[in-house]
Design a protein around this nucleic acid. Structure first.
Lengths: 187, 187
DNA sequence: ACCTGAACACCGTTCAAGT
DNA sequence: ACCTGAACACCGTTCAAGT
């Protein structure tokens, strides 16, 4: 079956480029990694990359998709004592790839394809947060508000260099302070 | 006094370039505004900009400094009913220049000068928040934690497209939920 | 002191030509 | 189908030359 073999070869070579891209994007940054540099790392001519990817952003999306899949698989294997612990784990995972997080935020403003990826990523995270907050007993009429506060917290913890104890205290304060079953008027 | 006149002329022309830069950075974005485009808008040759500014990031810093001074002057004129109102006003002001906010976040990773500006800006905002939170009766041992939560909230509200009522509810929930005089153990 | 035309080094991307 | 050398258009910035 030549079709299958061909396709597999192609997928393998594509993955080698993604490997090199991920290393360079994390180590040197997306902007600092020129297509020439990436091609050298993958031992091919610069324009050969365009046989496997539409453009530079398409390479970034491939790196992101592969990494997201791996982290989601990790996430499902974990078990957490409470909401604060769950959040801190997620923040820590994102910190390990923080240059990619920054790059997505920066490129989302310039490249529509990255913006689409970013929005889809947010919808995923928000959906997962909703499930957990509902299970934790947050009142339905507060679900969106509380979820947004946790999203802000994840992003805040990620972009600000705080000590571990400061991070923990922030999560703790939010866990205690956010209303559970009590009702507050909405306008 | 020729010295004074000369200096004033120079300052005036510099300001014209900053005017053009601010308009273009807000309307088209920083990256999309090439030095050639900026020079055309200011009716000068591209390289003439380098007589007034060190490089492109230096132009950005000039725009930021001038805008920040103007907004701070506005802020001091305002009077607010409570912490939530104060925060929502600040968020609204930042929304008016949101392309600049995004640009600072993106460039801070690549240009040390922008990173320095960003850090100084954060120190300023945090100091102002501390003053207000202390006046609002937040316990001293929670000041840093609560301040960080408000910083996260400002940034979150700024980067996520939420309805006015959602924004208000988030600020309200945080105002009510955050501990005031009660003490919580720290580790 | 101030301004410019021309050039430089670099970038992502394209294209014609090879196998 | 896959790969490449050469070229293209663009970028921020520099430099020698003018006033």
């Amino acid at each position: 079956m030549p079709r299958n073999n061909r396709m597999q070869d192609r997928e393998e070579k594509r993955n080698l480029i993604i490997d090199a891209a991920q290393q360079l994007f994390l180590r040197e940054g997306y902007e600092a990694t020129s297509m020439t540099r990436l091609a050298n790392a993958a031992s091919i001519a610069p324009n050969t990359i365009y046989w496997y990817f539409k453009d530079k952003d398409d390479v970034l999306i491939a790196v992101l998709d592969r990494e997201l899949a791996a982290r989601l698989a990790d996430y499902l294997k974990q078990s957490f004592t409470d909401m604060a612990a769950r959040l801190l784990w997620v923040v820590h995972q994102l910190e390990l790839v923080s240059p990619l997080v920054s790059t997505v935020h920066a490129r989302a403003l310039l490249a529509p394809a990255i913006q689409v990826w970013h929005e889809q990523f947010h919808r995923l995270i928000e959906a997962m947060l909703r499930v957990e907050l509902e299970a934790a007993g947050i009142a339905a009429n507060h679900l969106e508000t509380v979820m947004n506060i946790w999203v802000f917290t994840i992003e805040g913890l990620l972009t600000h260099p705080l000590s571990a104890s400061q991070k923990q205290q922030i999560c703790q304060t939010l866990s205690l302070g956010i209303p559970q079953q009590t009702s507050v008027r909405t306008n």
